[in-house]
Design a protein around this nucleic acid. Structure first.
Lengths: 333, 333
DNA sequence: TTGAAAGCGCTAACAT
DNA sequence: ATGTTAGCGCTTTCAA
C-alpha cells in the first residue's frame, strides 16, 4: 500500500502534459483561454497523476480566500439546520465555508481565533455568546454577521427572527380554539427568551387575557420542560406555549405520565419546528423559523459587506410561521 | 467604522521594528535564536500593528499543515460528542482540526474533496457511508481513520466499538433481573446494527433463551422506535433491548401511552448513552460508548500514520459499558 | 544573534 | 492559444 511520496503539483502536471504551468492553471480553474484539445489532455494527465490543487497556495497568490468562517454550537440541533443552509447558500455565490465548533471544552473566542488565522473574509456567528463589545471589536477587523441574536452596535450585521411574532401567532391560534388559560414556559436567559416572553404578554393583553397570563420558568432542554411540567401539574392551564421544542417534549412527557391527555386536557405549542417536532409520534404544533431564508440572507449580507456594497437595513428580520400539528385542539366545553 | 485596508505582514512588522523578516519569523514562532530584547520589541510592534500570521503562507512554506480533516454528519448527535473529543485530543498533540459537514444537500464525497483541497495530513471519518473501495482509494492518498464502522481492507485504520459486547451486557443485566422474554428492536441496515443483532442472538443462546428470542424491525429514529412499540403492543415481552437511544425513546413514548409502565411492565435498554438518555425524565438504561477514548485513539492513530510510525493493530476495539438507570427493573413475579 | 536569499505551489500580467 | 515572469507571506538554509 504505497503512499505517494509527494503530492503532484501544477508543475508536475505541466511537465507530464508538455505545457506551461500557466496553461494548466487556466485549465484547472476552468477559465477561458485554452483549446478544447489541450484542456482535455491536461485534465486527463491531472486525473492519472491524482492532482488536486493546493487551495492554500491558490489563495495566497490570489490574495483572497473566498472563505466564510462559521462558528456554531456542536450540541445545538438547530445549528445543524443552519449549517446545512449556509453550505448551500455559500456555494451558490462561489464561497467556501470553514466551520469552527464551540464545544464544552472549546469556547467561542477559540473558535473565532481559528477562523481569523485561516484568513476568512467574513464571519457568520450562530447565536454567539460573546459580550457585545467583543463582537464589535471583531467587526472592526472583518465583516461579521450574527444569526439568532440581536446586537445593538451598528458595526455588526444581524439576521434574526421576529421572536415575539411567533408567540403572537401561537397565542392567536390557541385563543381561536377557545383557550383562555394559556401559560408560557419561558427560556430564562437563553437567546430570544426575553422577546418571546414579551410576545406572550403582548398577545395575552391584546386578547384581554392579561389577567390569566402566567409565566412558568423553563429553559432550553427537555429537563427544563419536565420541571415546568411538574410545576404546572397542581393547577394546569388549558394550553401552554413553550420556549422551544426540546423543552416542550420534556413537558409533554411529564404531563402525559401525570395522566393528562394532549390535546384533550392540555394543548401545547413549541418553537423551532425542529426535526423533533415533525416526528409522527410527537407531532408537535410549533413555530417554524425558516433556516433556508435566514442562511441565504446571512451569506448574501456577508458577501455584500466583503464587496463593500452598502447593505441596508443592518438588521434583517425573518418572519416565523405557525405549523399546526396534533398537540393543539379545541378547549374543553 | 474604518476597516484596515490591508492586513499587516511579516515584512511590515520587520520594517517597523528595524529587523529582518527572518528574525520576526523566529520571534513569532517562539523559536530560540533571538535576544530577549529584540523579542519583546518585535512582539510589541506586532501587537500595535495588529499583526496575525497568515496560516496559509506559513503552511505553504513549511510544507506541512498539521491539519486533521474531520467528516461528520450535522444531524448526528453522537458526532457532536465525537467532534468535541477530537478537538481536545488534536490540540494535545499540536494538530488543528478542519471540519467538513455532511448535510442532506452535501454528500460525503463533497465533504472529503473539500478537506483534500485544504491539504489535511490525515482524514478522520465519522461513520462514513462511502463504499469501501472509495475509502481504500482515499487511503492510498493519505492516512484515513474510520470511526464507528468496520472496514475490512488493511489500508484503512479503524476505531470502533465492540457492538455485540454492549448487547451482551444489556441482556446479562436483564436476565439477572429475572427477565426471560427479552426482545430486540434492531437497527435494520444501519451501521453496527448487524453486530448488535448478532450480539443479541449470542447472548440469548448463552442464557438458554434462544427459543424466546424475538427480533422486531426498528431503525435509527424515534419514529422507528414508535413503530416497533406499536408492533409489540399485542404481545409485549417483559424487556426489550433497543438499537439506540433515539429509537428507545420513541418506543417508550408509545408503550407508555398504551398504558404500560416502565420498568414495571416493561424494561427498556437503549444504546449510545446520548444526552437524551441522561435526561432526568428519560433516565434510560443504556450502553455507553466512550467518545473521549475513541477520539483520542483516532487522533493518536492518525498522528502515528502521518509520522510513519508502524501502528498496530489496525483495528482498535473500544469496549462499551452498561449504564444502569431507571428504565430497567426486576421482572414481575 | 542577525540578515540575505531562495523558494513552497500557485495565479496574473504581460509577452509571443 | 500558449509561455514567461514575477511575486503572494512566510520559513529555512546559509553566511555574516
Amino acid at each position: 500500500m504505497s503512499r505517494a511520496e509527494r503530492r503532484p503539483t501544477l508543475a508536475d502536471v505541466a511537465a507530464e502534459a508538455g505545457v506551461s504551468t500557466a496553461l494548466v492553471s487556466i485549465v484547472m480553474r476552468g477559465t477561458p483561454g485554452a483549446s478544447a484539445e489541450t484542456r482535455s489532455r491536461v485534465l486527463a494527465v491531472a486525473q492519472t497523476l491524482g492532482y488536486h490543487p493546493d487551495s492554500r497556495a491558490r489563495l495566497l497568490r490570489s490574495g483572497r480566500s473566498r472563505l466564510l468562517g462559521v462558528v456554531f454550537g456542536v450540541q445545538h440541533a438547530f445549528h445543524g439546520d443552519l449549517v446545512t443552509g449556509l453550505y448551500t447558500a455559500a456555494e451558490r455565490i462561489g464561497y467556501e465555508l470553514t466551520l469552527s465548533a464551540v464545544t464544552p471544552q472549546r469556547d467561542e473566542s477559540r473558535a473565532i481565533a481559528g477562523l481569523l488565522q485561516d484568513r476568512c473574509e467574513a464571519l457568520i456567528l450562530l447565536g454567539p455568546q460573546s459580550p457585545e463589545r467583543e463582537l464589535v471589536l471583531l467587526a472592526g477587523r472583518l465583516p461579521v454577521v450574527v444569526l439568532s441574536r440581536g446586537v445593538r452596535d451598528s458595526a455588526v450585521d444581524v439576521v434574526r427572527n421576529a421572536e415575539a411574532e411567533g408567540v403572537h401567532q401561537a397565542v392567536d391560534h390557541l385563543v381561536a380554539l377557545g383557550h383562555h388559560r394559556i401559560a408560557h414556559v419561558d427560556g430564562g436567559r437563553a437567546a430570544g427568551a426575553a422577546e418571546r416572553r414579551r410576545g406572550y404578554r403582548e398577545a395575552m393583553r391584546r386578547h384581554g387575557l392579561a389577567e390569566t397570563a402566567r409565566i412558568v420558568p423553563g429553559g432550553l432542554t427537555e429537563e427544563d420542560g419536565a420541571a415546568a411540567g411538574r410545576a404546572l401539574r397542581t393547577d394546569p392551564p388549558s394550553a401552554v406555549c413553550v420556549f422551544n421544542d426540546r423543552c416542550a417534549t420534556g413537558l409533554l412527557d411529564v404531563v402525559r405520565r401525570a395522566g393528562l391527555t394532549v390535546p384533550g386536557d392540555l394543548s401545547v405549542v413549541g418553537y423551532d419546528d425542529s426535526r423533533l417536532a415533525r416526528l409522527a409520534h410527537v407531532d408537535l404544533t410549533t413555530v417554524a423559523q425558516d433556516a433556508a431564508v435566514m442562511t441565504s440572507l446571512a451569506v448574501a449580507r456577508a458577501a455584500d459587506r466583503i464587496a463593500g456594497t452598502p447593505a441596508r437595513p443592518r438588521e434583517v428580520i425573518v418572519h416565523p410561521r405557525l405549523v399546526v400539528r396534533g398537540t393543539t385542539g379545541p378547549a374543553k366545553r
